[in-house]
Design a protein around this nucleic acid. Sequence first.
DNA 1: GACGCTGTTCTATT
DNA 2: GAATAGAACAGCGT
Length: 270
Amino acid sequence: MPELPEVETVRRTLEKLIVGQKIMDVRMRYPKIVQTDVETFQKTLKGQVIHTIERQGKHLILLLDHDALIIHLRMEGRFFYHPSHHPLTKHDHLVFELSSGYNLIYHDTRKFGTMHLYDLKDYKNQPPLVHVGPEPKDIEVSQFISHVQKRKTEIKAILLDQHAISGLGNIYVDETLFRARIHPTRLGSSLSDQEIKTIVFQAQDVLEEATLQGGTTIRTFEPMDGVHGRFQQELAVHTHVGKPCPICHTPIIKIKVKGRGTYVCPTCQH
DNA sequence: GACGCTGTTCTATT
DNA sequence: GAATAGAACAGCGT
């Protein structure tokens, strides 16, 4: 659910709240979120100051004195920022006690989120970041064209794969392909240079617009406590089954592509 | 109560 | 290697 625009919204919110603060302690109620040795994680974080918050694709990166904390929210991960006496709830899994007296709480209903901790010197060369490709705005288009044309799998699957292009998830792939008028089941090898260029351009556009709107709030996701995305008002096809296509008014249909719910206009997309 | 579906990524298998 | 299926997990609707 959190794709690039949602993660960027979280990044901006966190930046205002926690940059400059020291991590006094870390409490782990569900340690499996942490992919690094649990004791090392706790010891290493304690006492470090949070200097900068970056983002790469859908990953958040907290840059500390000596280390980088890489966070992936997966589907339902989110942060709360509460005074230390605020009671914890069922799915509050990690608590970062900060120097302001507030706690940064990692909350994740489905426990799919991950955190990795690496030395500042080499976090970019380690999983999970080592395999994350450039975002649509930074992509080398000619390289991307040859990558796509080599692959005999659906374009939707290629766009969801974070290796060659990063930041897109189920929502924004559907919106990108609708704007590009390309059917999600088209094989990479069947697409022309121009069609792939259009896809990249539309992806840049849709991500930029969505980021400006604070992301998309559907199902249970909200970027942070009390912060709601507004982009769901702009969705053309995603979740719009049965509603008229904004271009031709044909009802939007829902199909399955590689097991993923996929929304298309059967008239506009070829 | 059982089952399918939800979205993202990693791992194992072909 | 490329493509695919399955697993990690909780909750909601049927």
